[in-house]
Computed example of a mutant assay.
Amino acid sequence: MPSFKSHLVSFILRHSRKKAFASPENLQRWIAYARKTEDHHPPALLRERLDITERSVDGFPVYEIAPKAGERRRILYMHGGAYVFQITSYHWGLIAEMAERLDFGITVPIYPIAPEHDFHAMFGMVGDVYRQMLDETDAEDIVFMGDSAGGNMAVVLTMMAAEEGLPLPSRHVLISPGLDMSLSNPEVFEAERNDPWLGISGGLEASLSNPEVFEAERNDPWLGISGGLEAIRMYSAGIDRSDWHISPLYGDLSVLPKTLLLTGSHDLLSPDNLIFAKKARAAGVDVQVVYEEGMFHVWPLIEMPEARRARDSIVAFLEGEPTKRRATARRTARPALAARPAQAAE
């Protein structure tokens, strides 16, 4: 049974963030406001607890949370935010706990976001960060972790690295990842009814004219697909939404490493997450799924009993020895990691 705290969080979401993703215009207004208030720096309390350094890659900040002496394993953490919002204190709280409990080094790129930047800038920067990590650390000691849009980025970055012949990370931790931006799964609309964050706006397409969809939209407290599509439009650089660079569900899943996928029954993205797990397993990938009844989008970031269970699952998954990749996963010459979309939309 969901905790009282989770019900409270759902109530707050349901009565506060409704307008942000209700329309493209609303999203643009929220982005404009966010640019006046966002601060990517780690909170001061974290700096007191952890050894944090900052450097620059392609002109953007990258934070390094140092591990225990002698520890080689590292996490590349890619934050969520619909590709248009900056890292938050909730992300930093999760990152700090993982650093303290695992003693891994954690690399946190403050990657370029839309609408000021697009897909090519985002993956150009995080690709350079990953190549630099490979110069210092064996791929078998690297984990990709990301939430929501960051989970999408983790999968796409691995697929792009495979395409370029780079060594691949040993594991993925994906928290409520966005894996199918084509919005073609009819189960999404059924899941939307129960999601306390995400909703479907009537501005999507004429084919989504079912009045039940609009009723579900009225009941949703935060993100709408209309605003979400605007975020995708702003970052995708004209790439079709069904292209694997945008929707990695349609890419070569066989290249992915052992994966922990966390999703909840009240998360709009959950149906696609479960399809991803099924397809990845069919492609030979070891996928473990944490499916939490009653939980909403990226719930492990929010302090509550269900999040503590989720974080325990992440620690247990990563504390074991990483599965050894093939011999070519050792450091070799690094070909360029280019952001090359397969096809642009008309």
Score class of each variant (00 low, 15 high):
Leu8Cys: 02
Ile65Met: 06
Arg193Ala: 11
Ala327Asn: 07
Ile65Trp: 11
Ile142Glu: 10
Met304Val: 00
His91Ala: 07
Tyr83Cys: 04
Glu64His: 15
Arg101Tyr: 04
Asp180Ile: 01
Arg334Gly: 00
Glu163Ala: 09
Ala34Lys: 07
Val188Glu: 14
Ile275Ser: 06
Gly251Trp: 10
Ala231Phe: 05
Met145Trp: 05
Leu8Gly: 00
Ile302Gln: 02
Ser247Asn: 05
Glu140Asp: 15
Ser182Ile: 01
Glu230Tyr: 15
Phe144Asp: 00
Thr328Cys: 06
Arg334Gln: 12
Leu179Met: 08
Ser242Arg: 12
Ala191His: 05
Ala162Thr: 03
His117Trp: 09
Met234Pro: 04
Ala99Gln: 08
Met234Phe: 09
Arg331Ala: 05
Glu205Lys: 13
Arg49Cys: 07
Trp92Cys: 07
Ile87Gly: 05
His297Leu: 08
Met78Tyr: 04
Gly151His: 05
Ile95Glu: 06
Glu187Phe: 13
Gly59Arg: 08
Leu223Cys: 13
Ile200Pro: 01
Glu25Gln: 13
Val57Glu: 11
Val156Asn: 02
Ala342Phe: 13
Val57Thr: 09
Ala283Tyr: 01
Ser176Glu: 05
Pro248Cys: 06
Thr263Trp: 06
Gly70Gln: 06
Lys36Met: 14
Asp58Cys: 13
Arg14Lys: 15
Ser236His: 10
Pro109Asn: 04
Trp30Tyr: 15
Ser184Leu: 14
Leu13Met: 15
Ile106Asp: 05
Gly238Met: 12
Val188Phe: 13
Ala333Trp: 13
Leu102Val: 10
Asp267Val: 01
Ala280Cys: 03
Asp240Ile: 09
Ala149Asp: 03
Gly320Trp: 07
Lys278Tyr: 03
Met153Val: 00
Leu269Asp: 10
Gln343Tyr: 11
Tyr130Thr: 06
Arg281Ser: 08
Leu45His: 13
Leu301Gly: 11
Ala82Tyr: 10
Val315Ile: 15
Arg55Val: 01
Met160Pro: 08
His117Val: 00
Arg311Asp: 06
Ile113Gly: 02
Glu346Lys: 12
His297Ile: 10
Phe144Met: 07
Glu48His: 13
Ser170Arg: 10
Thr263Lys: 08
Met234Leu: 15
Arg47Leu: 11
Thr323Phe: 04
Pro221Cys: 12
Leu179Cys: 04
Pro248Tyr: 03
Thr158Leu: 03
Arg47His: 10
Thr263Pro: 09
Arg17Asn: 03
Lys36Asn: 13
Arg35Leu: 02
Asn152Ile: 05
Leu223Val: 15
Met234Asn: 10
Pro61Arg: 00
Gly127Phe: 15
Arg241Met: 02
Ala96Ser: 09
Ile87Phe: 03
Ile65Val: 15
Arg29Pro: 03
Asp103Leu: 01
Arg326Gln: 13
Met295Lys: 11
Glu217Arg: 13
Pro248Ala: 04
Ala44Cys: 01
Ala277Met: 03
Ile232Lys: 00
Asp286Gln: 11
Ala307Gln: 02
Leu269Val: 13
Ala333Pro: 03
Arg29Ala: 15
Leu262Met: 12
Asp267Gly: 00
Leu50Val: 08
Ser6Phe: 06
Thr37Ser: 12
Ser16Ile: 09
Ala282Pro: 01
Lys279Leu: 08
Ile106Ser: 09
Leu253Asn: 09
Tyr111Ser: 01
Leu168Trp: 12
Gly178Arg: 04
Pro186Arg: 00
Gly199Ser: 14
Ala329Met: 11
Ser209Lys: 14
Ser270Tyr: 08
Leu208His: 12
Val290Cys: 11
Ala336Tyr: 06
